[in-house]
Design a protein around this nucleic acid. Structure first.
Length: 591
RNA sequence: GCGCCUGUAGCUCAGUGGAUAGAGCACUGGCCUCCGGAGCCAGGGGCCACAGGUUCAAAUCCUGUCAGGCGCGCCA
C-alpha cells in the first residue's frame, strides 16, 4: 500500500525473479539490493525502469546487461504484468506495464478514497512536532507564517503515514523579553496620560504596543497608575501577554493551524523542573561550574564549545529552560521529536542534540527542520522589515491581502531551507501566474464536468461499471501513471520531511489534467440532445483547421468512453484533493 | 578566523549516483460556435560557480578555490 499497486507488483516480480535466479545459482546475491523503480524521462523507455542490474554489477562480477537478462529470463508472471521488457545500454531494465495493470490504479484510488496515499510506516510511533513558538511579544509576521505552514503540512504528512502526532507550541513566557514587554506597555500607558515616561532602550516599538496600552488604559488605567512601577509593569506584562497570545492563536486558527498543546516555559521554572534538571546533570558531571557560572558540557556531544546555563547573577539562560523542556518531551515518551526553527538558529542544533543524547536518546531522535526567511516583495520591490523598529508585515495583513490558500501554497512551494521570495502582487493574482489557482482550478474543473454530466442525466459510473479498457490514449495512461506515483511522492515527503514535494507533484498532475481536458472531449457536445442513443450524435467533429488539434478531435466519443473518462477524471480529482488536504489547502468545487 | 547553508535557463526554483538536466514566470508566435480561456499548444534560451578526485555512471558523493547568506553572547 505505501508504494502504490503497480510499483508493488513490479517490485515483487523483480524480487521473485532474482530469488529464482539465485536458487538456480545464476546470481549470488550476497545482499539483496533495494529495488528502485523510476518513471523514465522518455516515452520510448517504457513506463517503469529499474537500475538493479547495474547496482549489482560489481558485487556479482558480471556485466550489467547479463544480469538484466538473467532477471528477465526468470520473471514468472511476466506476460501477465508486462507488455514489453527491454534491456538498454548500460543495463537499464525498461518495462512497459500492461494497460490492465495500470487500470488497477483507478480501482485502488476509488476503493481507498481519502486514504489513497496514506501508509502505515509510522503506526505505533508517537511524534511531537513543535513549531511557530513565537514569543508572545507581538503579532505573527510572515516568517512565522512559513513556519506554521511547514509545520502543519509536516504534521499532516506524518499523520498520513500512521504516526500519532502532537502539535505543540512552546510559549516563551519567561525572562527578559517578557519584562521588556511589560515595561514597554507601561511606558506607553503613561505617555497616553501625559505622564513623563522613559521608554526602555530595547523596548518594543510597534504600534500594536500602543493598541495594547490603550486597551489596558480603558479598562484599568487609573488603578494601574497608582501602583508602584514594578507592580504596574508586571501587571502590564501579564495583560499584554494575554492579549498578544490571544491574537497569535486567532491568527493561527484563521490560517487553519491547530495545536493540541501549548507549553509554557514559565511553568518549567515555577515547578522547579529547570533547577532539578540542572542539578541532575551537575551530579552526572555534565554541568560544571566555572567563572561563577554553570556550563553545560555540550562539547562532549560534538558542539563547538560548552554553553552557559546559569549566569553569574544566578539567572538561568534560555538554554536551561530548553534543556528542561526537551527533557520533558522525552519523558512524555515520544519516539521522534521534530522542531521547526528559523534558519538563523542553526548553530543551536548541536547543543540541543547534545541535550537529547545526555538524556540517553540517540541524537537523531530530535530532528530540526530549518525554515529560511521570507523575502516579501510587492510588484518586484522588496518590502523592508525590522522587528525591533516595529516595522514588519504581519501574517494577518498577508492573509487579508492574498488569502489563506495562496499564502500556504507559496510558503510550501520551495524547500523550507531556502530563501523564498513572496511577491504579494503575484500571490493575489487570480491567473495562471499563480500556481495555487492552477491546481485548485483543476479540481474545480472536474467538479464542473461532473455537474454538467449530472444535469444531463449521465450518472458517473464506478470503476466496476465502466469499461475502463477503453482508456487507451497515451494521455490517459500518462495521467494514470502520474496517479500511481502519488503514494511514492508522499512517502518521500514523509521520509525527508519535505512538504514542497507535494506542491510540485500537484502542479504536474494539474498540468496533465488541463492538457488532457483541452485535447480530449469527455462529455458529448450539448447540441441536439434529441439524438440521444444515436451514435451519430457522438460522431467525430470536423477535422479542424487548427494545427495540432485535428487528430485529437477526430476521436470517436462513445457513451462507454465518456463513462470511462468520467471515472478517470474522478480519480484525478480525488488525488488532487488528497494532496491539497496534506498541505492544508482547500479543494474548491467552484471558483 | 571557525562552523552551517546555498550557487542549475534572463528571474524564481525542482532534480536525495542513472539515459539527451526540467518546471513556472518573462519573451515570441498561435488557439475560445463546443464539458469553465483562472485553460491549451509551439519556439528560443544551459561550461549545473570553478578545479581536481571517487566509479560502469556525478548537478548529485569527497577535497580544494571563489561568491552570497546565516551563526559563532553569562541575548531569546
Amino acid at each position: 500500500m505505501p508504494r502504490g499497486i503497480v510499483q508493488e507488483k513490479i517490485e515483487n516480480l523483480l524480487q521473485l525473479a532474482m530469488r529464482q535466479a539465485q536458487s538456480k545459482g545464476q546470481l549470488k546475491l550476497t545482499l539483496m539490493p533495494a529495488i528502485t523503480l523510476d518513471a523514465p524521462k522518455r516515452a520510448e523507455w517504457g513506463d517503469l525502469a529499474s537500475t538493479v542490474a547495474m547496482t549489482l554489477a560489481s558485487a556479482e562480477q558480471r556485466a550489467p546487461q547479463d544480469i538484466a537478462q538473467i532477471i528477465v529470463d526468470n520473471m514468472a508472471e511476466r506476460d501477465a504484468l508486462l507488455d514489453r521488457v527491454e534491456i538498454v545500454r548500460p543495463g537499464f531494465l525498461n518495462m512497459t506495464v500492461k494497460q490492465t495493470l495500470w487500470l488497477e490504479v483507478l480501482r485502488e484510488i476509488e476503493a481507498l478514497g481519502v486514504r489513497y496515499g496514506t501508509s502505515r510506516t509510522g503506526v505505533g510511533r508517537r511524534v511531537l512536532i513543535e513549531f511557530v513558538s513565537a514569543n508572545p511579544t507581538g503579532p505573527l509576521h510572515v516568517g512565522h507564517g512559513r513556519g506554521a505552514a511547514v509545520g502543519q503540512a509536516l504534521a499532516n504528512l506524518l499523520e498520513s503515514a500512521g504516526y500519532e502526532v502532537v502539535r505543540e507550541y512552546y510559549i516563551n513566557d519567561a525572562g527578559r523579553q517578557m519584562k521588556l514587554l511589560g515595561a514597554s506597555v507601561y511606558a506607553r500607558l503613561r505617555q497616553r496620560r501625559g505622564i513623563e515616561a522613559t521608554f526602555p532602550e530595547d523596548g518594543y516599538q510597534g504600534s500594536y504596543i500602543e493598541d495594547v496600552a490603550a486597551e489596558i488604559d480603558q479598562r484599568q488605567g487609573a488603578s494601574l497608575l497608582e501602583l508602584p512601577r514594578e507592580d504596574a509593569e508586571r501587571r502590564c506584562q501579564s495583560l499584554a501577554y494575554e492579549r498578544l497570545l490571544g491574537a497569535i492563536r486567532q491568527d493561527l486558527s484563521r490560517f487553519g493551524v491547530e495545536f493540541q498543546s501549548w507549553f509554557s516555559e514559565a511553568s518549567l521554572l515555577q515547578s522547579g523542573a529547570v533547577s532539578r534538571v540542572i542539578q541532575e546533570l551537575k551530579a552526572r558531571g555534565l554541568i560544571v561550574e566555572q567563572d561563577g557560572a554553570l556550563w553545560f558540557r555540550s562539547s562532549a556531544y560534538g558542539d563547538e564549545k560548552d554553553r552557559v546555563v546559569r549566569k553569574q547573577d544566578g539567572d538561568f539562560t534560555y538554554l536551561a529552560s530548553d534543556i528542561a523542556y526537551h527533557r520533558d518531551k522525552l519523558l512524555r515518551g515520544y519516539d521522534r521529536l521534530i522542531n521547526i526553527w528559523g534558519a538563523d538558529h542553526h548553530g543551536y542544533i548541536p547543543r540541543m542534540q547534545g541535550v537529547v543524547e545526555a538524556f540517553g536518546s540517540p541524537k537523531d531522535r530530535l530532528r530540526v527542520v530549518l525554515v529560511q526567511m521570507v523575502n516579501l516583495l510587492r510588484g518586484g520591490h522588496k518590502v523592508e522589515m525590522s522587528k525591533r523598529a516595529g516595522m514588519f508585515v504581519t501574517l494577518r495583513e498577508v492573509l487579508d491581502e492574498v488569502g489563506v490558500d495562496a499564502a500556504k501554497f507559496y510558503f510550501l512551494m520551495r524547500r523550507s531551507d531556502t530563501h523564498v521570495d513572496f511577491d504579494l502582487e503575484l500571490a493575489k493574482r487570480r491567473s495562471s501566474d499563480n500556481p495555487v489557482y492552477y491546481v485548485q482550478y483543476a479540481h474545480a474543473r472536474v467538479s464542473s464536468i461532473c455537474r454538467v454530466a449530472e444535469s444531463r442525466q449521465m450518472p458517473i459510473p464506478t470503476t466496476a461499471e465502466a469499461d475502463l479498457e477503453l482508456l487507451q490514449d497515451p494521455d490517459e495512461l500518462g495521467l494514470i501513471r502520474k496517479l500511481s506515483a502519488y503514494p511514492v511522492i508522499v512517502e518521500g515527503a514523509v521520509e525527508h520531511l519535505e512538504p514542497h514535494r507535494i506542491t510540485f507533484y500537484l502542479q504536474e498532475l494539474a498540468g496533465l489534467l488541463h492538457a488532457y481536458y483541452f485535447r480530449h472531449r469527455i462529455l458529448p457536445p450539448a447540441a441536439e440532445p434529441e439524438l440521444e442513443g444515436d451514435l451519430a450524435s457522438f460522431a467525430p467533429l470536423e477535422p479542424g483547421s487548427i494545427a495540432g488539434l485535428s487528430s485529437c478531435h477526430r476521436e470517436v466519443l462513445t457513451p462507454g468512453l465518456t463513462g470511462a473518462r468520467l471515472v478517470l477524471m474522478r480519480q484525478v480529482q480525488q488525488v488532487i484533493r488528497n494532496g491539497l488536504a496534506l498541505l492544508g489547502i482547500s479543494a474548491p468545487d467552484r471558483m
